[in-house]
């Protein structure tokens, strides 16, 4: 029963998302900017193809970021505001199934968007590369991996947003909390690298320990960034990808468990 309820809710969430006009506009803007990439990439002196790949990956990343934050933060909160949650939970559906359904609906939308944006991007990249072929040919498999790991990254971010949404009674904590976690998670690897360097002498041992603890607690979003491999056609570190994917699965599962647990404890009036 739980499985089918989760799937049903995921399907409903996806349908609602596909009808969302804000996302239609975002997707339209994304596609439009993608079409301008071959022209923009001509600004480069020596790396037209590389600039085209840089731009398409940037556009995909920005679209997925906005979608993940909007969908992840608003889904539960909006349902509660519209008293939709009370009606759904009046049915024989557990709260865990409800949270998971919301998550899988959002995750499926992000995956679909990545796929379509990736397809359009490939055509755009091929066009840009045909204008000025680069020293290194485009590695399409590497590009596909880069887009796939982007979708993993933003699915994880959507899970974080859902956790905040399950805890919070207002709209502010989910939105600003998710953005803060995204920024901190994107910078944590750089901070860790800085701490490990010889430049740091003045920082106290306690500060270093706290920073290290945060590094392990926060999601490490830079692990999902394969831009440099896709842009410059570098060989992919396959073991690293396996670790990153395993990290994504485990971290997302933990976040979902916490979200389901906190939502189960929550009083809905």
């Amino acid at each position: 029963m739980r499985k089918s309820a989760t799937l049903l809710l995921a399907q409903i969430t996806l349908r609602a998302t596909l009808r969302d006009r804000v996302l239609h506009m975002l997707l339209g803007a994304g596609f439009f900017i993608l079409l301008l990439v071959p022209a923009f990439s001509l600004f480069s002196m020596r790396q037209v193809q590389e600039l085209a790949i840089t731009l398409v990956l940037s556009i995909i990343s920005l679209f997925l970021l906005v979608s993940a934050v909007l969908l992840g933060t608003s889904s539960i909160w909006r349902d509660i505001e519209c008293h939709y949650t009370a009606s759904v939970l009046g049915l024989p559906i557990s709260r865990t199934a409800y949270v998971l359904g919301k998550f899988f609906g959002t995750a499926f939308f992000l995956s679909l968007s990545s796929f379509f944006l990736g397809m359009v991007s490939s055509a755009v990249m091929a066009l840009a590369a045909a204008q000025y072929p680069a020293q290194q040919p485009i590695l399409w498999g590497t590009f596909a991996y880069a887009v796939f790991f982007y979708s993993c990254k933003y699915i994880l971010l959507a899970a974080v947003a859902l956790l905040f949404s399950a805890i919070s009674t207002s709209f502010f904590l989910p939105v600003f909390g998710t953005i803060a976690i995204f920024m901190a998670g994107s910078a944590s690897q750089e901070v860790m690298a800085y701490l490990s360097s010889d430049k740091v002498v003045q920082l106290s041992a306690v500060s270093k320990s706290v920073t290290k603890a945060l590094y392990y607690i926060l999601p490490n979003f830079s692990a999902f960034d394969l831009n440099v491999y896709a842009i410059y056609s570098l060989p992919l570190p396959l073991f690293g990808l396996a670790y990153t994917f395993a990290y994504f699965l485990v971290y997302t599962a933990i976040i979902l468990l916490l979200a389901a647990w906190s939502f189960a404890k929550r009083e809905l009036t």
Partner: peptide
Amino acid sequence: LVCGDQRHV
């Protein structure tokens, strides 16, 4: 620290 995966852009 602030630009994340947009550093190439």
